[in-house]
């Protein structure tokens, strides 16, 4: 076996392993297709391509739930440690944009989840009476509802991330 063939085999197997969980038929398809291609340079080119394909195809694994949990946790942490303002909006925009980019299909969920954090943290403060030391304004239901407005920038940022991803894939 030549170096070209060894590398092509490795790359195709990595791609197939990545695809197997979400698209088992397609993972087998690229392995079998690889075996049918004549010419080692063609096989290598094919292998690089399918590796790229395996990275581009959305997988139904735990990556998105993990990313969403991390983003929401970061937003909660930020909201708890700093006062509302332009900086909150920027953090929210960055996280929403990243989630929209990671999973364009789930942009609505991403936008809502990130946008709801500010209101949810205020709701927790209102219901529990626990709040950061710097927070002096008593929380009310009205304040919690008022901060639902942050769903709008959450959605806008996730839509922006989604658009960037779709442009790159087009």
């Amino acid at each position: 076996m030549t170096v070209h063939d060894w590398l092509a085999n490795r790359l195709t197997h990595i791609a197939a392993t990545r695809l197997r969980r979400s698209h088992p038929d397609w993972a087998q398809a690229i392995l079998n297709e690889h075996a049918s291609i004549a010419g080692e340079k063609e096989r290598l080119g094919w292998a690089f391509g399918v590796l790229r394909a395996s990275l581009a195809v959305p997988s139904h694994d735990l990556f998105y739930p993990a990313a969403l949990t991390l983003a929401v946790s970061l937003m909660v942490l930020y909201q708890w440690s700093a006062d509302e303002g332009v900086a909150t909006l920027m953090v929210l925009g960055c996280l929403g944009g990243c989630l929209g980019f990671l999973r364009p299909k789930h942009f609505l969920l991403s936008g809502f989840a990130i946008g709801l954090v500010v209101s949810a943290v205020n709701g927790f403060e209102w219901l529990s009476g626990i709040h950061p030391e710097y927070e002096t304004t008593p929380r009310t239901l009205w304040i919690c509802l008022h901060w639902l407005i942050f769903i709008v920038p959450g959605l806008v940022s996730s839509i922006a991330g989604r658009r960037v991803r779709l442009k790159l894939l087009a």
Binding site: G49, V50, A53, A56
Partner: peptide, 9 residues
């Protein structure tokens, strides 16, 4: 390339 083709398929 196969990298463009397979995601489309």
């Amino acid at each position: 390339s196969s990298g463009t083709l397979y995601p489309l398929l």
